[in-house]
Design a protein around this nucleic acid. Sequence first.
DNA 1: ACTTTTCGAAATTTATACATTTTGGAAGAG
DNA 2: CTCTTCCAAAATGTATAAATTTCGAAAAGT
Lengths: 238, 238
Amino acid sequence: MKQMASSPDKTLTEKAYRKLRNDIVAGRLAPGVKLKLEGLVADYEVGMSPLREALTRLVGDLLVTSEGQRGFWVAPLSLVELDDVSQVRSMIETEALNRSIMNGDATWENAVKAAFDELAAVERDLPSGPEPLDPPLLETWEERNRAFHAALASASNSPTLMRLRDQLYQQSERYRRVSLDRSRGWRNVHDEHIAIYEAALARNALRACRMTEHHLAKTTEEVRRAIAALAADDGSAD
Amino acid sequence: MKQMASSPDKTLTEKAYRKLRNDIVAGRLAPGVKLKLEGLVADYEVGMSPLREALTRLVGDLLVTSEGQRGFWVAPLSLVELDDVSQVRSMIETEALNRSIMNGDATWENAVKAAFDELAAVERDLPSGPEPLDPPLLETWEERNRAFHAALASASNSPTLMRLRDQLYQQSERYRRVSLDRSRGWRNVHDEHIAIYEAALARNALRACRMTEHHLAKTTEEVRRAIAALAADDGSAD
DNA sequence: ACTTTTCGAAATTTATACATTTTGGAAGAG
DNA sequence: CTCTTCCAAAATGTATAAATTTCGAAAAGT
């Protein structure tokens, strides 16, 4: 019997890549830390070659940096990069949304609907106050948020645009998660999602894009504050 | 004394990466061909590890594709991808140009000027007829054309935008070079460059972007025709 | 006294050689 | 003709060797 679809961890490289990526995006591997190969070989239970290849892929994703004969580091975070990535992402994301609204058929609508419903189900349970969020719930939210935004863009009919979108989304996610740890509130994220959702299904491209831009800008602003506060505390990262 | 700046081929991976990339972009490694590791180890005189790492980087650049336990191939070319990449590139390129025109200072102007002069010097020597172009001249033109467009975008003040731009430029270059081999004319490329150049230095962002869009669209159209003709001949690539 | 330089051992990355696993097809059985 | 079984080719992974960088202690210089 053969393994079926999608992305089975066929090779060790793949497995190591996924694990490392998750650990970096989720912040379990802190920004800027040196990634010593020997240590990773032990921790991730793979040999040098697959590990090295996984790291090379992560360099392409901008989640890891590397330097000639000196090794690998978790890519640092910076407020400057946050703004840069957020701006470009906003452009790409709205372009993809715009095209989706043009091209999207019933299948797209259903996908968006389904993704929205799943997301909404989680967001209704989110605390509004400063209570710390329990981790599995956060993971669920992250996943469904990702799926919702991906669904919106999914009818752009441009693999290139989708690829760039995914890359930038992932980069942004890192920042957001750092800030969510320390963030105390969940503002009106759900309302913003509703606004985007309704405008998209109403085929109001202009409004859907405006709402998306607003949503992303708000999020960036929140992240920026959280990171600035964090930097003020422990004096790290600019 | 230390090696100074830029990108010294410090590691074998780097060396192999560059060589492979050049061979793919210049078309010396044909689209779609299987890249057998053993063969490449012999041809490029590196071991498996550096080679594999170089190929992994190229997969990130979309110049190579890979599949689980099955190996690597030179990424195929297709008319659909050509259009997709060209459209997105046009968006990114004009966004970068727009920002450059906003932000660019005297240093930027000088860089653009210098790059344009160098490019113009080559373009005056280009044949207008269907004569085959001698290869070193083509290489020079490619390099200066790249430098000119890079200079225009260089004051965008957005590393992210620049990175995407470089990636897409490289992808486009592959297509252009395939078509240049068989293309018979050089249309009015030089005039288009002049128009972009003058609009940019006049800080006429709108016109500069319009001219750039036109320039890219024209180029894409020419490439499309050349590739379609090529496909009609030898029946390959869609 | 304090900074800078030099030198070499230790740590770490890079590369190779070899072993293992998987794939894809050819030969043979049902 | 279809389905196994087997085999060679090819990719992946491991262990190890080679090369490079780092870091600290001692020496030289200010």
